[in-house]
Design a protein around this nucleic acid. Structure first.
Lengths: 247, 247
DNA sequence: CGGCCGCTTGACTAGTCTCAATCAGTGTGG
DNA sequence: CCACACTGATTGAGACTAGTCAAGCGGCCG
């Protein structure tokens, strides 16, 4: 079950960090070891809940998870997707209680790294630096989501979200030029983009109608990426991908 | 002009950090020194722009500033307020370019700390820890804003925003039980809450009508805080204020 | 005194939401 | 292998929130 994560290129977390900072052999070995004991977690289970004390470090190796908050009336807002290679809060442990929950949206493979081991990892400068950059990108992504929900139309929001997820999955080798797995319900998309599942559905229809995407069976196919990007006004700078390559 | 910032209680930045971590004498002296050369900046000037390389550390000593992004069509989304005591990005410097801009919303007093000095400050453990906590709170606040814009009605959004700003200003001694300076235009509020200035105006009227607030002459008076909080469903946990006191 | 910017208000429009019913896909027990 | 149950997707009609356009007002600055 875990052997797939033992080589560097197959491990999305390693791959992501390497995208920010080249890691010395020792560091990557350390990370691979830490990734060994992955847990299978089925869709819709909370990894941690609002109000809980922060617990070490989560790594998502497979599947989609999210950060979210609930209102008293039961409506949900999703604040971030955690896709393979993403980590749940290295240093929230500085604070006393989670201000939000984290839950799987699909079946996932998750590694939970105990606080002690996490500290150990963070003592390695390259890993610490890569994780910090990763956290900065997460924050920039959050800002982009706020712009998305605050200032874009229903159709634009979805288009933008798809462009972003496409790029993020490509970065860890989980999307090809035009197609990737997207195991989200309309309700998930609605809670992400601040809409109703009914309206999401109509917006998706509009995107198909225009020949931009095709969504079904848990997979998204982008039929016309340039036009999709243009519609979404998508500018990938905030993801800070390929900065290392550019340097 | 700067003597007001030379004592600990009068310096909002120091006051904020002390709220997270008790600072040793040496550290506070260092911070006070750094705060000496404050600049007066008039309303509506960009401190840094999207695309620029990050520049050290900004401290806001007086006035309101914000992080924001513009769409191609000129609409703006504000992603954060920087109020006295807040800092603009200690470690974004790890990345190559700002993904957003920072601009003053009112006349401000701002300290810009050069990257070198900033590094020096961050070498002090207490300061580093306080700044990291502060950054975590900023991120939590960003999440709350996303929930606000994504899942609350126009009136609720404003109510929630006012509750938050009230508490944040109280934390640095700039608000009393019910009143504080709020030098924002309807347009600023609209760009914050993802609405139109026209609609903000109507929502504000509704809040006055219900006897919850009074907004005028750059000051907000909260007439009925409990009801305002209830309407906004405001739960201040995410601000992690008074955690030290509670400990 | 005049001009400008921001606030206010009104009438109309458009984008989303709500409610509700139907349909499709999947998994289960018999 | 089939009927049933459940969850999620789809569609339609109608209601409502928020946006648009436009005009008038008011305070502040030069």
């Amino acid at each position: 079950m875990t052997e797939r994560w033992s080589d560097a290129t197959g491990n999305p977390f390693l791959r992501k960090l390497e995208g920010f900072v080249p890691l010395p052999e020792t560091d990557s070995t350390l990370l691979l070891q830490a990734s060994q004991n992955a847990q299978e977690v089925s869709a819709g289970t909370d990894l941690i809940r609002e109000g809980d004390p922060p617990a070490g470090l989560f790594l998502i190796l497979e599947g989609f998870a999210c950060r979210y908050k609930l209102r008293d009336n039961g409506t949900r807002q999703i604040m971030a997707y955690l896709v393979p290679g993403d980590a749940g809060d290295p240093d929230v442990s500085l604070l006393k209680a989670m201000d939000h929950s984290i839950r799987t949206l699909s079946d996932c493979k998750v590694v939970q790294i105990a606080p002690g081991t996490a500290r150990e990892l963070l003592e390695r400068p390259a890993i610490a630096s890569a994780l910090r950059k990763s956290a900065l990108v997460d924050e920039a992504t959050l800002r982009e989501w706020l712009l998305n929900v605050g200032r874009r139309s229903a159709v634009e929001r979805l288009a933008h979200l798809f462009c972003e997820v496409h790029l993020r999955l490509q970065a860890v080798g989980l999307a090809d030029e035009s197609r990737f797995e997207l195991p989200l319900t309309r309700q998930d998309l609605a809670d992400t983009t601040g809409q109703t599942s009914v309206h999401v559905n109509r917006a998706l229809w509009e995107l198909s109608e225009k020949g931009l995407i095709e969504l079904g069976h848990g997979h998204l196919t982008i039929l016309d990426l340039p036009r999709l990007k243009q519609l979404a006004e998508f500018k990938p700078g905030y993801l800070h991908l390929g900065e290392q390559a550019a340097a």
